[in-house]
Design a binder for these strands. Structure first.
Lengths: 209, 209
DNA sequence: ATAAAACGGTATCAAAAGATACACAGTGTC
DNA sequence: GACACTGTGTATCTTTTGATACCGTTTTAT
């Protein structure tokens, strides 16, 4: 059960009290289990999800390759849904619950309406676009100019910063998918890092030192 | 001299008559010569440029490398300016006139105001963000998964589609900058394409066949 | 318990692309 | 004409990464 209090905490970037009430009134909590598909490629999107708890992975598939666009964390929304709602388009990407995830589903008709009425909502919309652009640009730069070993380190450091522990649960194959390369390459690099004393490898888990 | 008629033609995506008048009233035409710097990195941006004629190159520089973000063509605006105006930020990127370029400069205070009042303006804003994201994603995918020869061909095809002639004026060095690689690599690839009969090389010019 | 699937280590080979170096041809300037 | 600068051709070498193959271990499903 999700309490109003928790929802309100996650939408603290909405400063207008009236809008906070509207969101509670029209938003509906939807829950997904780990692995659930939230949006399929090609699906029409009628709601804007705001993540209350959990994590959503948004990606595209192209010729049996996955292209990671971004993760949607609590208090964030999905740029692709936003834009699909806005233009009444099909979703060009797929969204997957990485863990048990609760979202607050806002009917799409409110998006532009609230943009006109509430500054903080419009801010939220624009910030969502800009943030994802910046992230993508970052990824682009690291793919274009950095070697994979540096990208692996950056990925692990980022994961570490999101949690308490220094042990990151991920298999070599999954890590390869995240970075758009192959398992062998990742195993090779990780082993070298282990030899260099930067980390310790466990089964489906990497311990940073 | 730029006539109102020409401006109105370039902003035909603005459907509200009232807004068209507002734009003419508050917008100011600024002209730049080829090579002029329109925005410097770090500069505060107070106006939103809508290109009426010409072409603007928007890019970042990082450790003596250039990262091309996008070109702004007539009827388009610059996403980075939009977002810098919106948040009253410094520009993270640089804008350069590629040819004689006329822009319609809209004072930044109108951006959010018009978003609230006029649907087509809000559409313009959102479309600008989405379009640049999609472009960047495309570039990202081709950098991540395509070989350079394919990217060279794609670049040339794109340039050809923008003009009448099949002769593209660009040096190997410039082309290398556009694609984020080195001159030698480009020369090597182009020469191979010439041997394959796909194009003919001239000095600082490539003729597609 | 046994089979199947997931996970990971490692060796070999090939391809792509970057780095460097050098030569030479046009173009523009004085 | 002498000179500098830009543009291009090309050879050599190295590094990075991907592809493939094979093996052993651990976990999961039936």
């Amino acid at each position: 059960m999700i309490f109003e209090k928790e929802i309100l905490k996650k939408i603290d970037f909405i400063t207008e009290n009236e809008l906070r009430k509207e969101i509670l009134k029209h938003g509906e909590i939807l829950s997904f289990k780990k692995g659930d598909v939230i949006v399929r490629e090609g699906q029409y999107v009628k709601i804007l999800p705001i993540v209350i708890s959990g994590l959503i992975r948004v990606f595209q598939t192209k010729e049996d390759r996955e292209i990671l666009l971004y993760y949607v964390e609590p208090s964030q929304t999905c740029m692709m849904s936003l834009s699909a709602c806005f233009f009444n388009n099909q979703s060009p990407s797929q969204a997957l619950a990485m863990t048990q995830t609760d979202i607050l589903a806002i009917p799409s008709r409110f998006i532009t309406q609230w943009q006109k009425q509430y500054n903080s909502w419009n801010n939220f919309v624009i910030k969502t676009f800009r943030k994802r652009y910046d992230e993508l640009l970052d990824t682009f730069e690291s793919v274009a100019f950095d070697h994979i070993d540096k990208r692996v380190i950056a990925y692990l450091a980022h994961r570490k910063s999101q949690q308490e522990s220094t042990r990151i649960k991920i298999s070599h194959q999954q890590l390869a998918n995240e970075l758009g390369t192959t398992r062998v390459v990742i195993s090779r690099i990780l082993k070298q890092f282990e030899i260099d004393g930067k980390l310790v490898l466990h089964r489906a888990e990497i311990e940073l030192l």
